[in-house]
């Protein structure tokens, strides 16, 4: 019978299917970012997060070090509370700052971290104190329109 041939073909088929899944997970998805050694969570409060979404990257100097895991609103202060999952192999000083930036003019928003100078590191559950909100294009444009030329308002 041709049983051997069909068994071989089925084996190949299963391997192909699993390889495809592996490719989707590793090459298409971002499983390697979060799977390498675990993460710790820190929070940061922002006045305005713009269009930041969960899963958005967290970067330092342009290098991806984690992702946004959760976005909620503080019921007392009404500020946005963003939880960041950061890879364990990266430690940051406690006085680091976080800002929401945009990749390109209309691109995706992400959180950029700037390390501070403290000796103590941020721990799991810690909080980033210094934050800079998202730059909202519409606000800047309206400010530009209503203020005098050459006088741009700096506060955010």
């Amino acid at each position: 019978m041709q049983a051997k041939g069909s068994e071989f073909a089925v084996g190949l088929f299963v391997v192909a299917g699993l390889l495809a899944l592996a490719m989707l997970a590793l090459k298409v998805g971002n499983i390697h970012v979060l799977s390498a050694g675990g993460t710790y969570a820190v929070t940061a409060d922002f006045n305005d997060i713009g269009s930041l979404k969960p899963k958005a990257p967290v970067t330092v100097a342009g290098v991806r070090v984690g992702e946004v895991s959760r976005i909620t609103v503080d019921p007392v202060t009404y500020r946005a509370v963003v939880t960041l999952d950061i890879l364990k192999k990266y430690r940051f000083p406690r006085d680091s700052s976080a800002s929401i930036q945009t990749a390109g003019l209309l691109g995706e928003q992400f959180v950029s971290l700037s390390p501070g100078g403290s000796r103590q590191d941020l721990k799991n559950g810690g909080k980033i104190q210094i934050t800079q909100s998202a730059i909202i294009l519409e606000k800047i444009i309206s400010q530009l329109l209503y203020s005098k030329a050459g006088h741009s308002s700096g506060h955010s």
């Binding site: 899944l21 989707l24 997970a25 090459k27 298409v28 998805g29 971002n30 499983i31 899963k55 990257p57 991806r64 995706e108």
Partner: peptide, 19 residues
């Protein structure tokens, strides 16, 4: 092409969801 894909596709939601 690949890096944009990787930053936006979530394994747990999109790929496992599709599976």
């Amino acid at each position: 092409f690949w890096s944009q894909m990787q930053s936006g596709v979530s394994v747990s939601n999109d790929i496992i969801g599709g599976l």
